[in-house]
């Protein structure tokens, strides 16, 4: 390397760590503390076991952990639970992709043009205050029970947070960066591609992570109210038939998948925003 590595000009961090951000982050978090998050779930599991074992709660309301695992195995082997699971994942993925792509495209357009924002503003601000559940009956009347109606309702709930954050992100571009683009004689399209959109990416990423969680949570409502398949449908069916163990199996799966989605989005966020110092979401 050059003389630039001399003390006065030394990089603040070792370059090896800088290029691959994960070792730096791992080093900041001692290995032992990483597992601190497991204590609470384990504690809850113990309380759950005690509650059923000592019969604090009737088994029909709260089956034991073991009974729940058995129900899980039965559901996989005899009721093809995996198909309902994949079905839910499929619905949510489609809704998430359609909703967020539309939101980013329209958000960028509205962020760049005050007229586009004025055009959509009143309509969007009214629609977004009508919850997805309230839309469902009408949409089901139009599209019938099943996937399209569910995708539309979930997609709507993905759209608004992402749209609003994209718009805000575009508007928050630094004035000094615009000035720089002017000095470098960038054209409007270069300015948008190289300066404006990248400055909106952090807030877009935050909203995508949030929206992914919302979408997954909504699948229960959407499938429960308008369908014959999927995890959401299974939950409502289990409630009606008082098969509590199956109900809990579905809840645990939904929770774990939601957790996995959130962590995946966090990893994606860290990768996309690797240029941002200390960005933890």
């Amino acid at each position: 390397m050059t003389d630039a590595t001399n003390s006065t000009f030394a990089v603040r961090r070792p370059l090896a760590g800088a290029r691959t951000p994960s070792p730096v982050r791992a080093a900041r978090r001692p290995a032992g503390r990483r597992y601190i998050g497991i204590i609470l779930p384990l504690g809850l599991l113990i309380v759950w076991s005690l509650a059923t074992w000592l019969a604090w709660v009737p088994a029909v309301f709260l089956p034991s952990p073991l009974a729940t695992v058995k129900a899980f195995v039965a559901m996989v082997t005899r009721q093809s639970l995996h198909q309902d699971f994949l079905r839910s994942i499929n619905i949510v993925s489609q809704a998430f992709v359609y909703g967020s792509v539309a939101a980013v495209v329209l958000g960028v357009a509205a962020g760049l043009s005050a007229n586009v924002e004025r055009f959509f503003g009143p309509t969007f601000d009214s629609i977004r205050h009508i919850p997805g559940v309230a839309w469902l009956p009408l949409i089901v009347l139009w599209l019938g029970l099943g996937a399209p109606a569910q995708i539309l309702v979930i997609g709507k709930s993905v759209f608004f947070p992402v749209f609003l954050n994209t718009l805000q992100g575009i508007r928050n571009v630094e004035k000094s960066h615009i000035e720089l683009a002017k000095v470098l004689t960038l054209t409007r399209s270069q300015l948008i591609r190289r300066v404006v959109i990248p400055s909106a990416v952090p807030s877009i990423m935050v909203s995508l992570r949030y929206a992914a969680g919302v979408a997954w949570a909504l699948v229960v409502t959407a499938e429960g109210l308008s369908g014959q398949e999927g995890l959401g449908y299974l939950i409502f069916r289990a409630q009606n038939l008082l098969i509590t163990d199956q109900l809990i199996v579905c809840m645990v799966i939904i929770g774990l998948v939601g957790f996995a989605i959130d962590r995946l989005m966090l990893l994606l966020q860290r990768f996309v925003l690797r240029w941002k110092q200390g960005f933890e979401g």
Partner: peptide
Amino acid sequence: IALVGLRGFEKVYPYQLSGGM
């Protein structure tokens, strides 16, 4: 990049540079 003595730092992001760099 060589002229300003930053050879070896081509792929580095700004947050990783000191003020002088």
